[in-house]
Amino acid sequence: MRIKGSLINTAVRSLAQSMNTTTMVSLVKRLLRNYDLNERTGFPPSIPIPNIDAARQIVNDLNENELFPQFINLLVEISTAGWMGKKYDIAYIRDLVKELVEHGFIYDSTNKLFVEDPAVRRTRNWGVLREGQECIFTFLRFDIVGNTELVRNYPKEVIDATYSDFGDIVKRSINKRNGRVWSWEGDGGLIAFYFSNKNQMATLCAMEILHDLFLYNRLSCRLDSPLKTRIAVHSGNCDYTSVEEDIKKLDPVKKILDYESNHTAPNSVTVSGVVHATLDGIVAQQFTPLGGAAKGKLFSYSLEGACA
C-alpha cells in the first residue's frame, strides 16, 4: 500500500540526514535493483544531487512501488546491525516506526518485517509481499465432503446458508492467526499463512475448524446429516502470486490438493511431514502417522481420536 502524509516527510528528512546520496542509492537498489537516481531526478551525472532532493525522490519512488514498509525494515536493520561494516545512526528512526504503526503496520519479529496489522486491514499479500517474491508459505486446504450430493438434495438457500455458516467458522479461525484466503470456491478453499510460527498456526486453525464444525453440526446445522470437511496442511517454497490460475500451478498447492483429496478422511486433518516436524510436541502428539503410500509423509488428526 502507498503511504500518505507526514510519514513520507519524516522518511525524507531521516534519509537526507543519515547518509550521502551514494549510500542512499546502494540502499534503494536492495529493493529496486536497476534504480537510476539521475534518471529519476533529471540531474545529469556530472552535477551532484542535493541530499534532500535525492532522499525525496527515493522515498517517493519506493512509496509508488509500494515498498515503503520494506524500506523502513531496511532502515531499522542498518540502524541496529549496521551496513557493509559501517554503523549508521538513522535520524528519526523511532518516529518512523511509531508513525508506521499508526498507519496500521505491526512488526513481525520472526521474519523481521513490518506487516499490516490484521486488526486494521487484511490484504492477501499482508501488505508487503511483492508479485514473484520467493517465500515459504504454509497452506491450509479445506473441502466440504459430498458437495455434489448436498447441492442435489437440498434447496439452494439451505446450501447457501450452510456454506456461509461454514465460511464464518473458517474465517473466524484464520483471522485469529493472520491467515489469508487465497481462493474460495464455495465448497472449498485455500488459506495461506506466512508470518510467525506459520506451520503451527495453520495446524491449530485446522483443528479448531474441526471442533467448531462438530458443535455447529449439533447446534445449528440445517442439514439432516452432519456437514463434513477434509482439511490438509502443507508448507513449501514458491513465488508469491495474486493470480488465481497461477496459484493452482504452484508446487506446494498441487501437493496439498493431493493430500486433501486423496489422503484425508472426512472430518479429519492431514498434515505433511514437513509441517509435522516443526510442530510443538504437544500438537504433534495429537497426530497419528498414516499408513500405506503416505507412510512417514502424512499425519492425521480427528476429533474422535482426540476426545475419545
Binding site: 503451527q200 491449530l204 483443528m207 471442533h211 500438537v283 476426545c307
Partner: peptide, 21 residues
C-alpha cells in the same frame, strides 16, 4: 466449558504456552 474441554491442546499452546499439555 465444552469448548474449553475440546480445545485443550489449542489452549495449552496458544493461550497458556507453558510447554506442557
Amino acid at each position: 466449558c465444552l469448548r474449553m474441554m475440546m480445545n485443550r491442546v489449542i489452549i495449552s499452546v496458544e493461550d497458556c504456552d507453558l510447554g506442557t499439555l
